[in-house]
Simulated scan of single mutants.
Amino acid sequence: MRQAIFLDVDDTLYDHLSPMREALEEELRLPASFPYERAYYLFRYYSDLLSDREGLSASPDRDKIANMQKQRFMLMLADLGVTIDERQAGRLQAAYLARQFAIRPFEGALQLIEGLKRKGHLVGLITNGAGPHQMRKIGALQMENHIPKQRIFVSGVVGMAKPDPDLFAHVNQVTGTLPEHSIYIGDSWRNDVAGSLGAGWTSIWFNHRHAEPESELTPHHVVSSYAEMSRILLGEQAGE
């Protein structure tokens, strides 16, 4: 049966931790023992929390977005016992932004996308963020060689953001697909798991950072690699 299979972008298609880690290392000279995995989890947690609270993922309000970007660094570091001021947070955001476009897809990501297409499935992307910013990252990943633009949905362009189930319903409407035949792959519990399940989609939680569930929801599959995704979605070992 032909299915619609959509992927998240940040920390699902590529390693989103690396630019944050490099920014923290450059600006704060943190010790090698600093818990970067935990820092990344908190960074995403506060980014999602603040964005959801202010409706920023589908908003063009640059001042509010800039404030959120600084606050997420401050809150994340405070939880880990490091205090910074807004000026330092602004420098961290600038350093982080400068590194966001030197990215490449995770091992196995492109092979999975092409394998799904060969089997006749409809493949696309759904991502939160400002349109130009997310599209620049998608361009850096050279996704235009693999996924048509009409199947790339960015919250800042659509005007709705994950975890709002209306965004997933909008994707179904535009692509002529049905929720019961749709699958979403993403790393964020709040945005990706809760959002896709709320829309009646099959949810694959890409938990490659081994995070704990944030609620009683149950994704249909939990995977930590693209090899596992390939076994589930293609019925074969990655690379075969």
Rank of each mutant, 00 (worst) to 15 (best):
A4P: 09
I5Y: 10
L7V: 15
D10T: 04
T12Q: 14
P19M: 05
P19V: 10
E25H: 03
L28A: 10
P31M: 13
Y36Q: 03
A39S: 09
F43V: 01
Y45K: 02
S47Y: 08
S47L: 08
L49H: 03
R53Q: 09
R53A: 10
L56Q: 03
P60R: 11
D61A: 11
R62W: 11
R62F: 07
D63I: 13
I65K: 04
I65N: 06
Q71P: 04
L77A: 01
L80R: 04
E86K: 12
G90H: 13
L92I: 06
L97Y: 15
A98I: 03
A98V: 02
E114V: 10
K117Y: 07
G124A: 11
G124H: 07
L125G: 06
A130I: 09
A130Y: 14
R136P: 08
K137S: 06
G139H: 10
A140K: 02
L141H: 10
Q142T: 12
Q142F: 10
Q142A: 15
M143S: 09
N145G: 07
I147C: 11
I147R: 13
I147N: 09
I152M: 15
V154F: 12
S155L: 06
S155A: 14
S155F: 05
V158Q: 13
G159W: 15
M160T: 02
M160F: 06
A161V: 01
D164W: 08
H170M: 11
Q173W: 13
G176E: 10
L178T: 12
P179I: 11
I183L: 15
I183W: 15
S188M: 04
W189K: 01
W189E: 00
A199K: 05
W201G: 08
I204Y: 12
W205V: 01
F206G: 01
T218K: 12
P219A: 10
V222H: 00
S225N: 00
Y226W: 04
E228S: 00
M229N: 02
L233C: 11
L234E: 00
G235I: 08
